[in-house]
Design a binder for these strands. Structure first.
Lengths: 184, 184
DNA sequence: ATCTTTATACTCACTAATTGAGTACTCGAA
DNA sequence: TTCGAGTACTCAATTAGTGAGTATAAAGAT
């Protein structure tokens, strides 16, 4: 009833990238997701799930469908970005992820699209994520410094997180130089 | 109808640890899960979710409940390990996780219980996980070596994973020395 | 000439995961 | 005396995710 559902979109935004250039239908998007060496490397989606996410994006007004009848086949639902969708996608690509658990999939997906968009968006994304990671590290260090009454286990947990974040930061540097050398 | 449901238990096993020593009821388990510096540090569960997981464990025959009536309050369901549950828990604690995505929560949960059990189980778990991680690394290196026709993006994805696994391996070393020095 | 795959383009019904909210009582403090 | 906090769960609802199915055409096999 209420017009504003709490729409928890995040990784779904990655699908919008496929229809930036030209409208596509769901089946084709699924094909491209599977394609080797691309997004499918980090994000796996069953077909039925893909269609579910697409309708979610549609009901959120980020994409709009146009029915293209085909004689004797199910009609294609040609999907295209709405203005809101185009904006949401741009924002999503540019924004770093806010939690470590989102690095493996969502950040790599952002990087994929950023890198399709060119060197500048890529560098900006990397810089933004680096800032975010540094913030996480700073917070961790504060927590660890305050740890006088900390159990050995709790300390190990914090050290685990520190290690993962530091590895991420080093890898972000790798990304930058890889892309810089790819540009030349 | 069929007696064998495909029961996809894994992280749920961590709950069994709470009733190793004495039977507890769900509410109490939730309290202990929240307790600072413990498992709650890595695994957050809403109350309703906890109860759902407990019934799953029960229908899998790993725990059994005894109803304890209390005058004028809802009766407690006192939960205890079955023989199968005790075995399943021991196996779970000893086994390394098979996928990188399970490191942040499930492995840390295993470590928590291993370390409650003493130095030997802890060392064994760490060793087993180290072997597993080394295997992942070896596979990654093969993939990377075979990468002649690889896009820069695909290469970065592989390098990301390598970084995370290497950080994990270093951290496993930290764990070992931390626990060794705690033992003295 | 017919028969079987394979590709196209989705839909449906279901189970599992997860959440918010509620219930029904007690006890201690203001 | 009433208000909040604690005890111990339960329920209904929403979301996520999967397996299987549908309907058709074109391509290839026998």
């Amino acid at each position: 009833m209420s017009p504003k559902r709490k729409s928890n979109l995040s990784i779904e935004h990655a699908l919008l990238g496929f229809i930036q250039e030209q409208p596509l239908h769901g089946y084709e998007i699924h094909q491209r997701l599977q394609a080797a060496q691309q997004l499918g490397l980090v994000w796996h989606l069953k077909q039925a799930h893909l269609y579910a996410l697409l309708s979610k994006l549609e009901s959120d007004g980020l994409i709009a469908a146009e029915l293209i009848a085909q004689e004797a086949r199910p009609p294609r639902r040609l999907l295209q970005l709405t203005a809101a969708g185009r904006e949401a996608f741009a924002n999503w690509v540019a924004a770093p992820v806010q939690h470590g658990r989102d690095l493996r999939i969502e950040f790599l997906a952002k990087l994929f699209w950023a890198q399709q968009r060119g060197a500048t968006p890529t560098e900006q994304l990397i810089a933004a994520q680096r800032d975010e990671c540094r913030m996480w590290l700073d917070n961790l260090r504060v927590e660890m410094a305050q740890s006088t009454d900390t159990t050995p286990y709790a300390l190990l947990v914090l050290e685990f997180r520190r290690g993962q974040i530091e590895a991420m930061l080093e890898w972000l540097d790798t990304c930058e130089s890889a892309l810089a050398s790819a540009a030349t």
